[in-house]
């Protein structure tokens, strides 16, 4: 699978929701704990050597499981291979809880579920917004179409350039 490392590196420089120096141990057998700067940016967890600007690696936090590990540590595993765990060691129980909370909220799928939850609650309360039962954003698109008068949508605004060559 091809991806542009520079794009991911640029993302790793974006403001972090959470960043700290943690002990980290990879999933390979015989891996040892290393000090890493760990940085949570949207649904990616980047890890850096403490003296380097570019990340060593990134984990996409979709379909992952966050588990507490003793003592004051946690692990991240992914559903296709739950035995393969990335271990992290925190300085305190408090820091560990903070990281686990942030990581659990960091997936797009979590946001999608939240969106559906709020939509349903609003619907129950107000009887409105009863459009579709899509995956979340599909419903949103339908709603937008109704909410935004056509002349105000960015699609027709100057924010988008005209297709070159079109009249």
């Amino acid at each position: 699978m091809r991806y542009n490392e520079k794009e991911l590196q640029a993302l790793s420089r974006q403001p972090a929701e959470l960043a700290a120096e943690l002990g980290m141990r990879g999933p390979k057998k015989g891996s040892v704990v290393k000090r890493r700067l760990v940085k949570l940016v949207v649904n990616f967890l980047f890890y850096f050597r403490t003296d380097e600007a570019e990340p060593v690696g990134a984990l996409l936090l979709e379909h992952c499981r966050i588990t507490q590990e003793e003592p004051s540590g946690f692990s991240i595993s992914f559903i296709e291979d739950p035995e393969r765990k990335y271990h992290f060691e925190c300085c305190s129980e408090e820091q560990c809880q903070e990281w686990m909370g942030a990581l659990r909220r960091a997936s797009y799928e979590f946001m999608r579920r939240s969106l559906i939850f709020y939509r349903n609650e609003i619907q129950k309360m107000t009887g409105k917004v009863g459009m579709g039962h899509g995956s979340g954003r599909g419903w949103l698109v339908a709603w937008l179409t109704l909410c935004c008068p056509p002349h105000r949508t960015p699609w027709s605004s100057s924010a988008y350039r005209k297709r070159p060559g079109s009249s």
Binding site: L60, H63, D81, R112, S135, G136
Partner: peptide, 20 residues
């Protein structure tokens, strides 16, 4: 730079909803 490619590929093929 490393990426958890296997998990990413798994996510790509999973039955979680596609937006487009």
């Amino acid at each position: 730079m490393k990426l958890n490619e296997r998990s990413v590929a798994h996510y790509a093929l999973s039955n979680s909803p596609a937006d487009h």
